[in-house]
């Protein structure tokens, strides 16, 4: 029968903090790039996508 190690070591806590930290950083990065895309598409004066009556939508 396999013995399970259950004790929480300081080492596990630090690895968890690293993994959670990296995870949060990646999620925030994705959110930022998404927000940036929305902002760019919405404010670019040369972009006439979806605007009726413009060359691109005709």
């Amino acid at each position: 029968m396999a013995t399970q190690i259950r004790a929480e070591h300081e080492l596990h806590r630090r690895r968890l903090s690293r993994n959670v930290g990296l995870g949060v950083a990646l999620v925030l990065f994705v959110a930022l790039v998404f927000g940036l895309t929305i902002a760019k598409v919405g404010t670019d004066p040369t972009d006439d996508l979806g605007v009726p009556g413009t060359e691109a939508s005709q």
């Binding site: 070591h9 300081e10 080492l11 806590r13 630090r14 690895r15 903090s17 690293r18 959670v20 930290g21 990296l22």
Partner: peptide, 14 residues
Amino acid sequence: AFDAEKEAGFGDYF
């Protein structure tokens, strides 16, 4: 390899 003192947390990278 299991020296917990040398194991970096997220704060160390920050």
